[in-house]
Design a protein around this nucleic acid. Structure first.
Length: 924
DNA sequence: GCAAGGTC
């Protein structure tokens, strides 16, 4: 019933592929004509159609994303043209950039003869904004255009026909929100980038970091929080303090095999408590099976694939960078093998022909057979996919759109990515894997232990999704009430480990969670970190901040700003939402947002010293930059014992605290932090007569009297070579001015020592691997040191009488502390070296020395963990040892890790050298 | 020489 004269309707889509789909669907592929436009990518489709009875000559074309850009007016473009703060107000304008002019000309040309303009842009905020850009271009040449918006949620027939028959008005609020976002991003980005680049680039020697390339120290509201995630994790790792924990393990060997039971209490951080439980178990060690549970468990296939999941999985399975993944995906999409790769959607529309997609894959040599099984109702392998709850209303999940057995010209990554998309799709429409899990619970002396085994009953989707596995494990059969004697019962220890560096997949998750970037841009932000030399990525796709990246974040953090955290973006997003919902006006949000950012900018400029100081931690001042020469170079104290290459010089950090650091920094990070109570320090020409290798120049210290105990002299000629007890004691008492010991941010724990023990050198013994607080050369006296030197071992095993060997403990509580241990595998004899002289188990050695740290309790050191309030009641090892009381410890048991347990005896034979579980007389 | 967002 198309009546009257035909009108010409210009339809504009966001991308060529959508223009083609819309034209194909509406024309039903009949009478569809295609011609070239001015732009080679954006074809023009023509056909006849009736909208609500009105006969129309339909012209369908496209743009390629945004048609316009936002930029400062010419006079502000040059970096030195204005004070960067002016960029918060400088006039900006929207214009069509050079590379989009062809598209603009096509739109103008087609608009002139059209009566209607129908906007088929993606149905999100950006799409709405692009719609208004198109409107601006088209109405500029034809004021009479009737503007309409088509709302569609998927490129499928019903939606597209519905959309064109129910045209609406474009939503200005949505477009306004994007306008505001663009302007804020531009003003903040340009002002801060110019500010920090001009401030820092030439003031420091950062060329080594940047390949001598002319670099820009950019700031952006997405790239900086992304960097923030990387730095925060890095700090978390650096500040991690390993904590020892204890657990009881039980194993049982039977004819059916071996079972390993783990303690249901898990890991205990209280050593004494763990020992009490352990002894209970050992003394009453018969195990009773109290529960045998069999349960069917399912392992579900993944949700349909969206962009972030594609990037994460390609990174995990193939170590492909997100940026490269998107490039390859784009190729596959352009060639028609996969659907549109930039989508948030992870659920299929009910109207998608899922079976049709599977049918296409039946002929594949490798996974074709699986596709055939899926389609066979007898196999009962099919399952309608469950969605992950995301839908951008514009694109379906990523799925194969055309069969391929591999194309000539595909790289290995093209093959891999296509395979991932196909296998993922086939997995989505498959039944979950089914397993039978058997859990056995046993009771030993009232303590519960459990073990479990899994049998895979049906692999289902795992047959095609080779990227995931679900291991099976078997355990012997147990019945409730059964009793047995454990084969081993051990008290084992472990230490907590820091989290790993962020992987690319982790980083994408952080960004997704905090709303940094969009599915189409996240990989760009990650790449930017690498391009700007803010971070590096290792072979395992894990990110480490560079000195430059860390310094920038540190600088802003020291100012007290969260500019490197996702908060700023979250606030902006919240404001944008208000604009898109019409509860706030664009101008209002722009004004308040920019005002706040401008205040922040001015404040940052006032505090620019913080940025400079943070940079100083990592970089040398460049020549003639006017930096404090004394601070940058310092006075030579000795040759660095770590790199053996550069001098160690006396320096002050920006907080005024003294340190002796290696000039080889940042390649060598050797540093000796000095007491925080130093008012002045000067390197003298006097050399230490004791410390080697020399020369080590003595330092004249002047301490702030009120900050040191009364029995110490405020003036002290000291040595950092390792011989100076007073200096060591004051360091322990007063703490150091180490930045890392004072920082401890970005983690849930408070101030903790962040020095990397692998990189710092002990002030006393000059050895790498521990700090002065844990220095073994200081914690045992000169007598024991002499003993070590002579190789003398005067302690004999109380059990077998063999001479003991001297070992050094490497546990958190007693790192560096020496102990004697029987060499025999059979004996568990153990005694701390510093208990030997008290008659605590040794037989011949006279103790000549008490632990010299006794006068300076380590918990006065603010950098230590005493103030962290972990609340687990763990004292440091040496304190705990004191608490135990001197002179009462007899031969002690050792655990698997060489830790003493108690002075108890084997309940079977009474021998103090072992527990009943390993008693040779057991069962005799 | 600056941002982030579309897309080719």
């Amino acid at each position: 019933m198309s009546g009257g004269r035909s009108i010409t309707v210009l339809n504009v889509a966001e991308k060529p592929s959508v223009a083609k789909s819309v034209a194909t669907i509406l024309s039903r592929n009949q009478g569809l004509r295609v011609r070239d436009g001015r732009s080679r990518y954006n074809k023009i489709f023509e056909f006849n159609y009736a909208i609500r009875g009105q006969s129309c000559n339909m012209i369908v074309t496209s743009v390629t994303g945004h048609l316009m850009e936002l930029a400062f007016e010419e006079r502000y473009r040059k970096w030195h043209s204005c004070d960067p703060v002016q960029l918060f107000h400088a006039p900006v304008h929207k214009f069509v950039p050079e590379d989009k002019l062809d598209i603009k000309r096509t739109l103008e040309q087609e608009s002139r003869r059209a009566q209607w303009l129908v906007l088929w842009l993606d149905c999100d905020r950006e799409g709405e904004n692009i719609a208004f850009e198109v409107v601006e271009v088209c109405t500029a040449v034809n004021h009479h255009l009737n503007i309409k918006r088509a709302h569609f949620s998927a490129l499928i027939e019903r939606d597209i026909h519905d959309a064109v028959q129910n045209l609406v008005q474009p939503n200005k609020w949505f477009a306004d929100a994007v306008d505001a976002r663009q302007e804020i991003d531009l003003r903040i980005g340009a002002s801060f980038t110019r500010f920090q680049t001009l401030l820092l680039k030439d003031a420091f020697n950062i060329d080594s970091v940047t390949d001598d390339r002319n670099i820009v120290l950019s700031y952006g509201p997405c790239q900086f929080p992304t960097l923030g995630f990387v730095v925060e994790r890095y700090w978390e790792i650096q500040s991690h303090e390993p904590e020892e924990f204890w657990t009881i393990n039980c194993s049982h060997n039977s004819d059916d095999g071996i079972s390993t039971f783990s303690w249901t209490r898990g890991n205990l951080f209280d050593y004494t408590c763990a020992v009490v439980f352990y002894e209970m178990c050992v003394q009453e060690s018969t195990a009773t099976v109290v529960n045998v549970r069999r349960q069917e468990t399912l392992k579900y296939p993944p949700h349909p694939l969206n962009t972030i999941e594609l990037e994460k999985r390609a990174s995990r399975y193939f170590r492909m960078s997100s940026e490269h993944t998107m490039k390859v995906a784009e190729d596959l999409y352009q060639a028609g093998f996969i659907s549109y790769p930039r989508t948030e959607t992870d659920c299929f529309s009910q109207r998608t022909d899922l079976h049709g997609i599977v049918r296409e894959q039946q002929e594949h040599q490798i996974w074709g057979a699986y596709a055939q099984r899926l389609l066979d109702p007898e196999s009962r392998l099919w399952r309608n996919p469950s969605g992950g709850g995301h839908d951008d209303k514009a694109h379906p999940p990523i799925h194969p759109t055309k069969f391929s057995a591999g194309e000539r010209g595909w790289s290995q990554d093209h093959h891999r990515l296509y395979e991932l998309v196909v296998r993922h799709f086939l997995a989505c429409v498959s039944q979950p894997a089914v397993g039978a899990v058997t859990t056995v619970e046993i009771d030993i002396a009232g303590e519960l232990f459990s073990t479990s085994g899994r049998m895979i009953l049906a692999r289902n989707y795992l047959d095609v999704y080779r990227f995931e596995s679900w291991g099976g494990s078997t355990i012997p059969t147990y019945v409730s009430g059964q009793q047995f004697v454990p084969t081993t019962l051990t008290l084992d220890s472990g230490v907590t480990r820091p989290p790993p560096l962020l992987s690319e997949a982790d980083l994408l998750s952080c960004m997704d969670k905090e709303g940094i970037g969009t599915d189409a841009t996240m990989h760009d932000h990650i790449k930017k970190l690498l391009d700007r030399f803010y971070a590096t990525k290792d072979a395992n796709t894990r990110f480490t901040p560079t000195n430059l990246g860390e310094a920038l974040v540190m600088g802003y953090d020291d100012m007290g700003y969260n500019l490197w955290k996702p908060n700023l973006r979250a606030i902006m997003e919240h404001e944008m939402k208000a604009v898109s919902e019409g509860t706030k006006r664009k101008d209002e949000v722009l004004a308040s947002c920019l005002q706040q950012m401008k205040t922040c900018f001015l404040d940052a400029r006032v505090n620019k010293q913080k940025l400079l100081e943070a940079m100083e931690v990592f970089f040398e001042r460049s020549n003639g930059s006017g930096g404090d020469e004394n601070r940058a170079v310092g006075e030579v104290v000795q040759l660095c014992g770590l790199c053996q290459d550069s001098d160690m010089v006396l320096k002050r950090n920006r907080d005024g605290n003294y340190m002796v650091g290696c000039l080889g920094f940042p390649q060598c990070r050797n540093v000796v932090w000095l007491p925080g109570s130093i008012a002045e320090a000067t390197v003298t020409s006097d050399r230490c007569t004791l410390c080697t290798p020399g020369p080590v120049y003595l330092i004249q210290f002047k301490f702030r009297q009120l900050e040191i105990p009364p029995n110490y002299n405020a003036n002290h000629l000291g040595c950092v070579g390792g011989c100076d007890d007073i200096l060591r004691q004051l360091t322990e008492i007063c703490g150091t001015g180490s930045r890392v010991s004072a920082r401890g941010r970005g983690t849930s724990s408070s101030n903790v020592q962040r020095d990397n023990p692998g990189q710092s050198v002990c002030i006393f013994c000059q050895q790498v691997g521990h700090s002065s607080n844990d220095c073994p050369s200081q914690s045992v006296g000169s007598r024991s040191a002499q003993r070590r030197q002579s190789g003398e071992s005067s302690v004999s095993c109380s059990s077998c009488g063999s001479p003991c060997v001297l070992r050094t403990a490497n546990t958190a509580n007693n790192r560096g502390r020496k102990f004697y241990k029987c060499q025999s595998q059979e004996c568990n004899f153990f005694v701390w070296e510093d208990n030997v002289d008290n008659g605590n188990g040794g037989n011949s050695v006279q103790r000549s020395n008490v632990r010299s740290s006794g006068s300076a309790p380590s918990n006065l050191n603010p950098g230590q963990n005493t103030g962290r309030g972990r609340g687990r009641g763990r004292g440091r090892g040496r304190d705990r040892d004191r608490d135990r009381g001197q002179g009462q410890i007899a031969a002690t048991f050792v655990s698997a890790t060489g830790e003493p347990i108690s002075d108890r005896r084997c309940f079977v034979c009474g021998d103090p050298s072992h527990f009943a579980n390993v008693c040779p007389n057991r069962g005799a």
